[in-house]
């Protein structure tokens, strides 16, 4: 298992890992990265590197998460002296610190008012605008958060991170159409993001489960996007998993519609349903790829250890369930 790393923190940080990360605070805080010598000498004897400040920022977040507010404050002070208190990023980090220390919703409300004040002075501070959305989300005011985000996106429509966040907020409200639209915007900005394709496919799949009639069209689109995600990444476990789930759901629908007469043919011209044979082939492909990934991961082959344990287990369960049905 990889040691918890502050430079590139993992994408999922469970509490034990967070604890290990924040325990790195004392050694890092014990030595100062900036030199105390006067100006020309300080350039020569400085030990800081670009990584230094990434590590400090991640350490700040890790200490706040584990309630080590003293270390967090020290790291924040250090960053403030280095970059000045008017740096956009420092302002946002200070905001996070205040949010973390707010004991109840009322104090959080005050932090929110503080953000409003900062934005009145400098409406172009996008980090603070994002924090504002995060506070609204934390207060449970999801519709307000959505409104704030749409305003942000009107001003900065190429912010992929914000589009992805808005998509998730909509998806939490079960507004599948809007969520799909937002992810399509992400894809316009980053057409090669395999995670975005898989997420879009997931949204189509969920929207198909939400509606009872005409499931064929969203499932077809879901299949297409899963196909694209595995086309962009040849060992994308989530993509193959989704491909298998969707094609298993599509197969009965397709055989049904082929036995009954071809109905709304003109209506579905935009997204013609796939052929039965190709869906079958895709399912076989997904099964074989998943089986390969599971086999290699479980035998701990060199270069195959990057998958997440939970995902591999889920894939195995899917394949096992499949095997039982066939038997």
């Amino acid at each position: 298992m990889l040691h918890p790393n502050l430079l590139t923190p993992p994408s999922v940080i469970p509490p034990p890992v967070a604890l290990q990360l924040s325990q790195k605070a004392p050694p890092i805080l014990s030595s100062s990265p900036t030199s105390s010598l006067p100006w020309p000498l300080s350039l020569l004897f400085s030990t800081e590197s670009p990584e230094t400040w990434t590590i400090h920022e991640n350490l700040f977040l890790a200490s706040l998460r584990t309630g080590d507010d003293v270390s967090a404050r020290k790291v924040l002070d250090r960053m403030t002296t280095r970059f000045g208190e008017h740096s956009e990023r420092i302002i946002a980090l200070r905001g996070i610190y205040e949010e973390a220390l707010a004991k109840n919703d009322k104090e959080l409300e005050q932090v929110f008012q503080g953000y409003e004040k900062i934005l009145r002075e400098d409406p172009t501070n996008f980090s603070i605008r994002k924090r504002r959305v995060a506070v609204l989300k934390s207060l449970g005011r999801i519709p307000d958060a959505i409104t704030a985000l749409t305003v942000l996106l009107e001003n900065s429509p190429i912010d992929a991170e914000a589009w992805a966040e808005l998509s998730e907020l909509y998806a939490r409200q079960n507004a599948w159409g809007q969520a799909i639209y937002c992810l399509e915007e992400v894809l316009l900005i980053m057409p090669n993001a395999w995670t975005a394709h898989a997420q879009l496919a997931t949204l189509y799949y969920l929207s198909a489960s939400a509606q009872s009639s005409n499931q064929l069209q969203p499932l077809t689109l879901s299949l297409r996007h899963f196909c694209r995600s595995v086309e962009l990444n040849e060992y994308y476990l989530r993509g193959f998993y989704g491909l298998k789930v969707v094609s298993r759901k599509l197969l009965p629908l397709l055989s049904e519609s082929s036995t009954s007469s071809k109905r709304n043919n003109s209506e579905d011209d935009d997204t013609p349903p796939p052929k039965l044979e190709s869906v079958k082939k895709l399912e076989e492909l997904a099964t074989s790829k998943l089986a390969e990934i599971i086999r290699q991961y479980n035998s701990r082959t060199q270069g195959w250890t990057g998958f997440s344990e939970a995902e591999v287990t889920a894939a195995r369960e899917l394949l096992d369930a499949d095997g039982k049905i066939e038997r």
Binding site: N233, G303, F307
Partner: peptide, 10 residues
């Protein structure tokens, strides 16, 4: 992309 996925950060 597949290699990034397979090997994970190391």
């Amino acid at each position: 992309a597949g290699r990034i996925q397979r090997e994970g950060p190391h």
